[in-house]
């Protein structure tokens, strides 16, 4: 699309103090070269409407703060060029399937609660080793590939807004927590499948995913939660049919003692803390 002269932002506004339901507000601003949706919101806040609220931080698609419903799609505002939308009318609403705190700020706490409930961390028997490591957990590149893609998640909530099940069902954990749970289930250093299964085998688990595929299409980082969820289902179904046996978590490899630093590799700088 050729760059427009002006861009109209149709923004979903909500003020919890006003007792009024959310309403649309149109604001037209001049387009500047390379303007993202987030840039546009900043211009609006600086020049037109100082009360406009949203969440953002890094401006480079890394922090996952600025997930919004832009022209009907869950996207990162910082990662969305006005020109790629193909229209000079930009509708911006808070991510659906989360309560609205104010204007474009969704309440992501249910997502993080569901995330925490699925134990997205290494679970091992050797707790002492985890806190005071004597070596490294051995992992091959192939074992790393099993979860690396899923570890790029920035918890922006775009997948949760795209998921049809999340549109009605608060009991469903959602794509992000499930994908992150799977990320640890298939980590060769982890031994917590049996523990996580206590939650995943219930209605909190992946059973209400019907592969509409939207979470993977919406993910701004290519994490592909739908793939993680289907692979998780395979694990759980095979587990029920007694066809799955979780491998033992990887062993601790002692730190090498006889190694010499290569001449061209400098010493690490002194710790700053």
């Amino acid at each position: 699309m050729t760059a427009p002269v002006n861009v109209t932002f149709r923004i979903r506004r909500y003020d919890p103090a006003s007792q009024q339901p959310p309403a649309w507000e149109d604001v037209t601003i001049p387009y500047t070269h390379g303007m993202t949706v987030l840039d546009g919101l900043r211009v609006i806040k600086e020049t037109r409407s100082a009360t406009l609220a949203w969440r953002s931080s890094c401006r480079m698609g890394v922090c996952g703060s600025c997930g919004m419903f832009i022209n009907g799609h869950p996207r990162l505002a910082c990662n969305t060029q006005i020109t790629e939308l193909g229209t000079s009318l930009v509708t911006v609403a808070p991510l659906p399937n989360f309560d609205i705190i104010r204007d474009l700020v969704p309440d992501l706490r249910p997502m993080f609660d569901a995330h925490a409930a699925l134990m997205p961390h290494l679970i091992r028997d050797d707790v002492q080793e985890m806190y005071e490591p004597t070596g490294e957990y051995f992992q091959t590149p192939h074992e790393l590939e099993q979860f690396l893609q899923f570890s790029y998640c920035i918890k922006c909530g775009c997948c949760m807004a795209a998921c049809p099940t999340m549109a009605t069902d608060p009991a469903y954990s959602g794509p992000m927590p499930l994908a992150q749970s799977h990320r640890y289930n298939v980590d060769s250093r982890d031994g917590g499948f049996g523990t996580r299964k206590q939650v995943l085998a219930t209605e909190k688990g992946p059973w209400k995913c019907h592969y509409a595929g939207e979470c993977s299409q919406a993910c701004p980082k290519g994490v592909d939660p739908a793939r993680a969820i289907q692979l998780m289902k395979r694990q759980l179904v095979f587990d029920y049919l007694r066809l799955y046996k979780q491998p033992c978590p990887s062993k601790v490899v002692p730190k090498p003692t006889e190694m010499k630093r290569r001449a061209d590799v400098p010493e690490a700088p002194a710790p700053t803390l």
Binding site: P16, P94, P96, D99, I100, M166, A167, T168, P170
Partner: peptide, 12 residues
């Protein structure tokens, strides 16, 4: 609590 914003059955 914030304003409810689930898409509902339309979201299916």
């Amino acid at each position: 609590k914030g304003h409810p914003n689930r898409l509902g059955v339309w979201g299916w």
